[in-house]
Simulated assay, not measured.
Amino acid sequence: MIHAILTRLDAAGPPVLGTLARLTFSLTLAGYFWASALTKLEGAGLSLNAYAQIFPRAMEAAGYDVTQLTLFHTVIVAAGTLAEFILPALLVLGLATRLAALGMIGFIIVQTLTDLIGHGALSQPATLGGWFDRVPDSAILDQRLLWVTMLLVPVFTGPGPLSLDRLIARRAQSQTALAA
C-alpha cells in the first residue's frame, strides 16, 4: 500500500512541481520584474534610469549623459528591458516555459553580476550575504539562489498541466491523431 502511494506521488511530482514553481514565480517575482521593467521606460522610450541600472559605471563616466554611450549600450538596455517584461509573462502563461525559465536564470545571473560589480554590492557584506551563514534573507546570494532553484523546476519538469504549452501539445496530438 505504501509502495502504491509512493508510486503515485512519483508520477504526480513533475506536473505538480512545474505548476507550483510557475505559480510561486507568478505570485512572488513576476510583479517584481514587471515593476523593475517599468522603471526603465519613459514615455515611448528608455529612461535614464534604465541605463543607470544596467550600466552604472558607464553612466557615471559619461556624466549621466546617455548620448555619450554607444549603440551597444542602447541595444543591451532595450533587450534587457524587453526580457524583463516578456520572460515573466511567458512563465506566468506557461508558454515556451523551459526556454523562458532558462532565460530568466540568465537574466538573474546578469542582474546579480551587475549588482555585485556595477553597483558595488561586493563591498557591502550585509547586502551580499553569504551561504551557510544562517541568515536566510540576504538580498543577493540567498534570495537569488532561491529564485534560480525555483526556475530550475520547470526547466527539468516542464510547465505542468495548467499551461499554454500543455494546451498546444494536446491540440497538436489531437490533430496528429485525426490525420492518422
Score class of each variant (00 low, 15 high):
D65Y: 12
M1I: 08
L128R: 11
A4G: 06
P15W: 04
G160M: 03
T112Y: 05
A79I: 12
R22Y: 08
Q173T: 07
W34R: 13
R170P: 00
L20G: 02
L87W: 10
L162I: 14
A52V: 08
W147T: 01
Q68W: 05
L122N: 02
G45Q: 04
A83R: 06
D115G: 00
A11F: 04
P125M: 12
D10R: 14
Y32E: 13
T97K: 03
V148R: 02
M1K: 09
D115M: 04
L145S: 07
L113Y: 05
D10L: 11
V92K: 08
A37L: 07
H73G: 03
D165S: 06
A169H: 09
L151W: 02
G120C: 05
A52W: 04
S138W: 01
S174H: 14
Q53M: 09
A61E: 08
F33G: 03
T70N: 07
V110N: 10
F33Q: 12
Q53G: 04
Q175F: 09
L27T: 13
V75N: 02
L102C: 14
T112C: 08
S163Q: 07
L152K: 00
A58M: 00
G31A: 12
Q143I: 07
M1E: 13
M59L: 04
L113Q: 05
S26D: 04
I86P: 00
L178E: 13
S26A: 15
L167H: 14
W131R: 09
A44I: 09
R22P: 03
A169R: 13
Y51Q: 01
P136F: 14
T97Q: 06
L167K: 14
Y51F: 15
T149M: 14
A177E: 15
D65M: 09
T149D: 07
A12S: 07
G43H: 00
F156S: 11
L141S: 05
S174M: 13
L17C: 07
A89H: 10
L9G: 08
V153E: 08
G18L: 00
W34Y: 13
E84Q: 15
E84C: 10
F85G: 12
D10T: 10
V153S: 05
S26T: 15
G130K: 12
I54P: 02
L122Y: 12
F33H: 09
S36E: 12
